[in-house]
Design a binder for these strands. Structure first.
Length: 424
RNA sequence: GGAGAGGUGGCUGAGUGGCCGAAAGCGGCGGUCUUGAAAACCGUUGAGGGUUUAUCCCCUCCCAGGGUUCGAAUCCCUGCCUCUCCGCCA
């Protein structure tokens, strides 16, 4: 959610900024509603004040044993007048909340213009693309000939966009997760967390998935409403919802492995082959809660923390800065890390690292005590994948394959793979 | 699942219709004392919002949502959660 004061003091600025996202914001409708809000709120509070004063007087008069009749005459239909004013006000406030919750975050100045991923800007490349003396296979062919990756079974057990891994590939995915968690906790100073994989409405509202993106979620229960988490970002970031954090405790750095569940509504026909786009996938997430002044630096650092994983695995990748049209609803700025997939002859997203500034924090009421200020201030939140484990598995399979369809295990994963050096 | 108890500020905990945004203690912050620290003592210390250049002033909040009342932390209803005991169970 954006700062309502920005709408009152700098509406033109907000409008231009939202235009960059192609978000059609109706300034006039907003201002009409806002002026009604102001009028009704002032009136309501006046009436409340009046009631409070009279009630107080009643108490005092009674205590003295004097006659309260004249006071009751004064009250008249204050009660019913107040009741209508209060309900009108809360209705307007609800309308405003609906509008405010539907407005995306403002973009950072450095975010380039553009409509789609074609307009994203490549920042850097790392690694050298492997040269194959044969036609490299994609992970589906590799996995099926190893008989350890089975999409038909996924359909049998659940539906399309699910997979069953067995044996060494299942272990490899687990090794990847362990390796990532160990690296982030031991070398990057993140705290490992284990969280619920179902989230309630308040949590999903806090990080911005609700109310606008309910279609992307799997609903697991109706009463109480619970959803399968689309990313560990939701439970982990909500740890600080409705809290005031001491300055000394910042930054908070969490890492968390979880399965992620996405309905992929609106992605029909996209990436239908293989493990690229599944309803369920494993991910190791990085989340930082920081002081506002530190968030840009922390965003760069968090992205670098994710890059280290790719570098240690010796997987070629590039870092891109998402353009205006491709940047997510809650983010001010996002870097994607895209890993090279020889089987697809393309770079594909394996991590997405975003700075949300105070957008999530305002929804979450996540604040910190700035001793120089009278009031608690909103924190900034940053998160990113470090990395998507399923896609890392794919990348290793495709980059480390040989002509016989065998897969060499990357050096850093050997401690997690027992004696297995090669799968074939 | 059955029986009982309870949800009050950062924490412990008092408050059963008006003098309560809330006692007291702890903690935090500032000060006195001290070479410094501790102790002791004094002061201070919840959050959100409206109006305003700002101060002032005003409104809301004692788990949540309804209700009774001129007036609710306090009374009534519903829900959620926590604790204790019994049962069941990975």
């Amino acid at each position: 959610m954006l700062d309502p004061r920005l709408f009152r003091n700098a509406i033109d600025f907000v409008k231009t900024q939202l235009d960059r996202r192609n978000f059609d914001f109706d300034v006039e409708a907003y201002q009409i509603l806002e002026s009604r809000r102001k009028q009704i709120q002032v009136k309501t509070q006046q009436l409340q004040n009046e009631r409070n004063l009279i009630s107080k007087k009643v108490g005092q008069t009674k205590a003295k044993g004097e006659d309260t009749k004249p006071l009751f005459a004064q009250i008249g239909d204050l009660g019913s007048e107040l009741k209508t004013a209060e309900s009108t006000l809360s209705e307007i406030q609800m309308q405003m909340t609906v509008i405010m919750e539907g407005i995306p975050n403002l973009l950072d100045e450095t975010v380039p213009a553009g409509k789609s991923e074609d307009d994203n800007i490549e920042i850097s490349r790392w690694g050298t693309l492997a040269k194959f003396s044969f036609e490299p296979k994609d992970h589906v062919d590799l996995g099926e000939s190893l008989e350890e990756m089975n999409f038909e079974l996924g359909v049998k057990l659940a539906s399309a966009r699910f997979v069953v891994l067995t044996g060494r590939l299942a272990r490899l995915q687990r090794a990847i997760i362990q390796f990532m968690l160990d690296t982030h906790t031991q070398e990057h100073d993140y705290t490992e967390t284990y969280v619920p994989f179902l989230a309630n409405v308040a949590s999903l509202r806090g990080t911005g998935q609700l109310p606008k993106f309910e279609d992307d979620l799997f609903k697991a229960s109706e009463d109480p409403a619970l959803y399968l988490i689309p990313t560990a970002e939701v439970p982990v970031t909500n740890i600080v919802r409705d809290t005031i954090i001491d300055a000394d405790d910042l930054p908070l750095k969490f890492t968390c492995h979880s399965p992620c569940f996405r309905s992929e509504a609106g992605a029909y026909g996209r990436d239908v082959r293989g493990m690229i786009r599944q309803h369920q996938f494993e991910k190791v997430e990085l989340v930082q809660i920081v002081k506002p002044e530190d968030s840009e630096q922390a965003h760069e650092q968090l992205t670098a923390d994710a890059e280290i994983i790719l570098q240690k695995l010796n997987l070629p990748y590039r870092k891109v800065l998402l353009c205006a049209g491709d940047t997510g609803f809650s983010a001010t700025k996002t870097y994607d890390l895209e890993v090279w997939l020889p089987g697809q002859n393309a770079y594909r997203e394996i991590s997405s690292c975003s700075n949300f500034k105070d957008f999530q924090a305002r929804r979450l009421q996540a604040r910190w005590r700035n001793l120089e200020m009278k009031k608690p201030e909103l924190v900034h939140t940053i998160n990113g994948s470090g990395l998507a484990a399923g896609r890392t598995l794919i990348a290793i399979m495709e980059n480390y394959q040989d002509e016989q369809g065998r897969i060499t295990i990357p050096e850093v994963l050997l401690p997690y793979m027992g004696n297995i050096k090669i799968i074939g």
